[in-house]
């Protein structure tokens, strides 16, 4: 599991759920913020026709946080929206996962189950969409 894969799963997990699982993991470590958490915006870019030149579609809210653990290990987190505790928690998990002894547990007991849940949520949504798949028949005029 890479840092980028972890950050993705953590950002795609609702904060309250992440907090519950993190607390259950029992990793307790002191840390302090080094930047933020601060809320700002990201300019969302699209492509003309989906594949062409880029253009600016509009902005979205974004919150970022950087922390250091008591032993000086840094961690960063980014998340869509304005939830500062979510961004900070992502940064904390990121920092802890830089320690080898925590990394295995974080990946196996936090990130992997969350990734599975994400995949399940998406599969359920996909099956819902699939129930609205339609076949149109072309009628001959005058029929």
């Amino acid at each position: 599991m890479t840092q980028i894969q972890r950050q993705r799963v953590l950002a795609l997990t609702p904060r309250e759920h992440l907090e519950t699982l993190w607390d259950a993991l029992g990793i307790r470590v002191d840390y302090r913020p080094t930047r933020g958490p601060e809320t700002g915006m990201a300019m969302v870019r699209g492509r003309i026709g989906g594949t062409g030149r880029t253009f600016n579609l509009g902005e979205m809210t974004l919150t970022r946080a950087s922390i250091v653990l008591i032993d000086g290990t840094p961690g960063d987190g980014w998340v869509r929206g304005r939830d500062k505790s979510h961004a900070e928690l992502i940064a904390l998990v990121d920092a802890c996962a830089r320690h080898e002894h925590w990394q295995r547990r974080i990946d196996a007991e936090l990130i992997a189950p969350l990734a599975d849940e994400l995949a399940e949520r998406r599969e359920a949504a996909s099956r819902t969409a699939a129930s609205t798949r339609v076949d149109f028949f072309t009628m001959v005029r005058g029929e």
């Binding site: 809320t39 990201a42 300019m43 969302v44 870019r45 492509r47 974004l62 998406r122 996909s126």
Partner: peptide, 16 residues
Amino acid sequence: LPRLAVTVPLQTDAMQ
């Protein structure tokens, strides 16, 4: 709000 980032162009083909 401050501008913190510019996103990678959306990949609409990867839409769910």
